[in-house]
Simulated assay, not measured.
Amino acid sequence: MYNDDGTFRDDFKLYGDDIAASEKQILALGSILSTPRIVNGIIYVGDSNESFYALRLITP
């Protein structure tokens, strides 16, 4: 997906050639693009629609 310098490979296509439109489409999906954080048995995560979630982890 990426070149060694962190840029997209020339042969990599997300949703076409327009990178800005591709990013807009990905963000519209409500994708979780961040790294979740777990603190005291609760997992915290945000999505690209500006929602933030806190879910309690239950262990059997």
Rank of each mutant, 00 (worst) to 15 (best):
G41Y: 00
Y15V: 01
A28F: 06
Y53R: 02
L29P: 05
F12G: 06
G46V: 01
L29F: 09
I19W: 13
Y15C: 01
G6L: 11
D18H: 02
A28Y: 03
L55Q: 10
V39E: 10
P60V: 00
I58S: 08
S34C: 09
R37W: 01
G16S: 06
D5E: 08
S48A: 07
S51A: 11
I42W: 08
I26P: 02
S51Y: 06
N49C: 01
R37E: 11
G30E: 07
L27R: 14
E50A: 08
L57E: 00
V45H: 06
D11I: 10
E50D: 13
R9G: 09
F12V: 06
M1A: 15
L27W: 15
E50W: 00
A21T: 10
I19K: 12
G30D: 13
L57K: 00
L29Y: 11
I58Q: 11
T59D: 08
Q25E: 15
K24P: 08
T35C: 09
P60E: 07
D17N: 15
I32Q: 14
P60Q: 02
E23M: 13
P36S: 08
I19V: 13
V45A: 07
L57M: 05
F12C: 04
P60I: 00
T59M: 03
L57N: 01
V39W: 03
S22G: 13
A54L: 02
G30I: 05
I32Y: 11
D17S: 09
M1I: 15
L55C: 09
T59C: 00
S31I: 12
P36M: 05
L14Q: 07
L33A: 02
S51F: 06
Y44Q: 03
K13A: 11
N49G: 02
S31K: 07
Q25A: 15
S31M: 09
I38L: 14
A20G: 07
G16I: 05
D18M: 13
S48D: 01
D5T: 10
Y44S: 04
S48F: 00
I42M: 10
A54M: 07
D10S: 14
D17T: 08
D10A: 13
L57D: 03
Y2H: 03
I58G: 02
F8G: 03
R37L: 13
N3R: 10
L29Q: 13
D4T: 12
I42N: 08
E23V: 14
N3F: 03
I26K: 04
L33H: 05
S34K: 09
L14A: 12
I26L: 12
S22E: 09
D4S: 14
